[in-house]
């Protein structure tokens, strides 16, 4: 039967495609910056015109602000913030204590509640996004380098499955847009590889900085799919998959996007 043949060979090609994707080295991967218009790139390039630095400054201030019953600030234990250089490139990271992955934002709240005995920050709040962008900014230019070995492996597989799964009323997967069509126009937007290396990112559309998980929610809703909660296991595993895909790509935080 004509169909069966066609479909079977299509399946063969798909399999081959999957192998090729798995073997493709990441470092040459273009980021959202490479596809952005020059005005947006210029805004990101200059720390003084980059609107995200309002939040980086909030983070810097919080770094040395004493809070919580332990009477400590981050600085009390970690000293100068340069001690954070390189740290964020290996997040999400497996936590034996939690038995699952932690994003940097989870780790920051762990520091606050467990070590400072202070209140957790809201995921999308100014202090949290400020601290996350301040810490990631210490690693600006350094290559992402997450591990998916050992304990992290099943979480990576879960994130990958999420990425490949068609969902929503439009029945599309992340792959359909971000692996199949980087550099191609979809209405007014140019699709990119959809990389996490610039987050938290200032979006001109949001007129503020936002987390990677907020972006996931947007990409889910656009295809009429139910968004998950920021910080959820689903989005944390998805972040692991995305970050591993971008291993070798330099940190841009805080990026500017349209």
């Amino acid at each position: 039967m004509k169909y069966t043949k066609y479909i079977t060979s299509a399946a063969g090609l798909l399999g081959l495609g999957a192998i090729l994707v798995a073997c493709t080295p990441a470092p040459t991967m273009k980021t959202g910056y490479d596809y952005a218009i020059p005005e947006t790139q210029a805004m990101q390039d200059d720390d003084f015109s980059n609107p995200a630095f309002v939040w980086v400054d909030i983070g810097e201030e919080q770094w040395s602000t004493v809070d919580g019953e332990a009477g400590k600030s981050c600085e009390s234990c970690h000293g100068d913030a340069s001690s954070m250089k390189g740290i964020s490139t290996s997040y999400p990271k497996y936590s034996a204590e939690d038995g699952k992955m932690r994003t940097l934002q989870h780790q920051i709240n762990y520091e606050r509640t467990e070590r400072m005995k202070a209140k957790a920050w809201k995921w999308e709040g100014d202090e949290m996004l400020g601290m996350a962008s301040f810490i990631k900014n210490q690693s600006k230019g350094m290559p992402l380098n997450v591990s998916i070995e050992g304990e992290a492996a099943p979480f990576y597989e879960a994130g990958k499955a999420f990425y490949m799964q068609r969902r929503g009323g439009l029945d599309m997967s992340c792959k359909n847009c971000h692996m199949d069509y980087p550099g191609v126009k979809i209405r007014a937007n140019v699709l990119t590889n959809g990389l996490p290396n610039g987050f938290p990112t200032y979006r001109l559309k949001w007129q503020k900085i936002g987390s990677l998980h907020r972006r996931f929610r947007g990409c889910n809703s656009n295809i009429r799919a139910t968004p998950y909660k920021q910080g959820s296991d689903e989005y944390t595993n998805l972040e692991l998959f995305l970050t591993h895909r971008a291993n070798g790509v330099a940190v841009e935080t805080p990026a500017v996007r349209n």
């Binding site: 799964q165 068609r166 969902r167 929503g168 009323g169 439009l170 029945d171 889910n220 809703s221 009429r224 799919a225 139910t226």
Partner: peptide, 12 residues
């Protein structure tokens, strides 16, 4: 002409 089958927003 085919509804989505996974994680479809309630409205759709």
């Amino acid at each position: 002409l085919k509804p989505g089958t996974h994680d479809v927003l309630k409205k759709f």
